Simulated scan of single mutants.
Amino acid sequence: MTLANYINNLLYRYECVIVPNFGGFITNKISAKVNNFTHTFYAPSKQLTFNSHLQNNDGLLANYIATAKNLSYTEAVLEIENEVKNWKLSLKNEELELENIGSFHLNEEKILIFEPANINYLTSSFGLTSFVSPAIKRIVYQEKVKQLETAAPIFHNEENNSKTPVFIKYAAAAVILFTLGTVGWKEYQKIEYNNLVAQSEQQQQNVEKTIQEATFIIDNPLPAITLNVTKKVNNYHIIAGAFREPENAEKKLQQLIQKGFNAQILGVNKWNLTPVAFGSFNSKKEAINKLKIIKETESKAAWLLVKEY
């Protein structure tokens, strides 16, 4: 599976997937909308954008690849780096096409331009497509009323002078209702369309404002049918330390690995620190017993982090 496939899988569950040293892919939720000019109705969707300024590793993509391919965190990071190098080499000479994500190319000013693929990342809209509904033309109903009047003429006498036949009342009421409905529906469409545009712009601003502060947590694995692997969920982590500088976290990781620990880096947390774990466990009892041993033999400062993936 290529790096593009991993990114594509994550975009269905997360609003932002950052590729270190390349940029971030962001999904923006768009409500259902209608085009008044073409009379086309569109289902709710998540549209994809790209921000080249989001290049710091938040750990989401690396952790996902490490789990899916049974690699260490360091090996996953190295794999991402190699793929990004190949992308940048390709962009110097030609357009870069990422399957099910979109294409990149450099313009004359050497600025990276992204063209998203026509993919809806909103899972609740799966199977829904746009459709065109012809505009209501009230002239059709006026012609039908005339046909009714021709087929059933009204004969004047004292009785029907005083009372209008019931079916004529219904026909007249129908014409009025269709007339008012058509005008009201068009006005309603205009208001709804303007609201949708405003909501979309506000959502984009909110994402750009908070994306750097977001903490991404893997809260559920992808179905086995997609990855052909069985994911073991380890929610309990024995922490050796949390570091401001990624280099210090990597140094601590290597020290623990040399001592025989199944250590790993857990990514950057919401305080912009990088935790390093002695090991991770799917059993709380097992994690507590291991923590006791580590406190007695290795580090009294070790502590237990419960983090659901």
Score class of each variant (00 low, 15 high):
residue 191 I to C: 05
residue 246 P to Y: 01
residue 203 Q to Y: 14
residue 201 E to F: 06
residue 201 E to H: 13
residue 217 I to P: 03
residue 206 N to K: 13
residue 222 L to M: 01
residue 232 K to H: 12
residue 206 N to L: 13
residue 199 Q to R: 13
residue 238 I to E: 03
residue 213 E to D: 15
residue 234 N to R: 07
residue 193 Y to E: 14
residue 199 Q to F: 06
residue 182 T to Y: 01
residue 243 F to N: 01
residue 210 T to R: 00
residue 229 V to D: 05
residue 205 Q to L: 11
residue 218 I to F: 04
residue 198 A to Y: 08
residue 220 N to C: 00
residue 237 H to L: 02
residue 185 W to Q: 07
residue 250 E to N: 10
residue 238 I to Q: 04
residue 226 T to E: 14
residue 251 K to F: 14
residue 248 N to G: 14
residue 249 A to R: 00
residue 191 I to M: 07
residue 212 Q to D: 15
residue 187 E to S: 07
residue 211 I to A: 01
residue 229 V to N: 11
residue 228 N to F: 05
residue 227 L to A: 02
residue 182 T to P: 00
residue 243 F to M: 04
residue 227 L to S: 15
residue 223 P to D: 15
residue 212 Q to W: 06
residue 224 A to Q: 11
residue 196 L to A: 15
residue 234 N to S: 03
residue 251 K to W: 11
residue 211 I to C: 03
residue 251 K to S: 10
residue 192 E to P: 02
residue 193 Y to H: 11
residue 197 V to R: 13
residue 249 A to V: 10
residue 202 Q to V: 02
residue 239 I to P: 00
residue 195 N to R: 10
residue 206 N to M: 09
residue 203 Q to H: 15
residue 189 Q to L: 13
residue 188 Y to T: 12
residue 250 E to F: 11
residue 218 I to H: 05
residue 219 D to W: 06
residue 186 K to C: 01
residue 246 P to Q: 06
residue 196 L to E: 15
residue 189 Q to Y: 04
residue 210 T to L: 09
residue 189 Q to P: 01
residue 236 Y to L: 00
residue 238 I to H: 02
residue 197 V to P: 01
residue 187 E to H: 07
residue 238 I to K: 02
residue 191 I to R: 08
residue 250 E to V: 09
residue 247 E to G: 00
residue 218 I to Y: 08
residue 243 F to C: 01
residue 201 E to L: 11
residue 184 G to M: 11
residue 217 I to F: 08
residue 212 Q to F: 11
residue 190 K to F: 06
residue 193 Y to K: 10
residue 194 N to W: 03
residue 198 A to N: 13
residue 233 V to K: 09
residue 238 I to Y: 06
residue 191 I to H: 04
residue 251 K to L: 14
residue 221 P to M: 04
residue 251 K to D: 08
residue 200 S to M: 05
residue 191 I to F: 08
residue 216 F to W: 12
residue 226 T to Y: 14
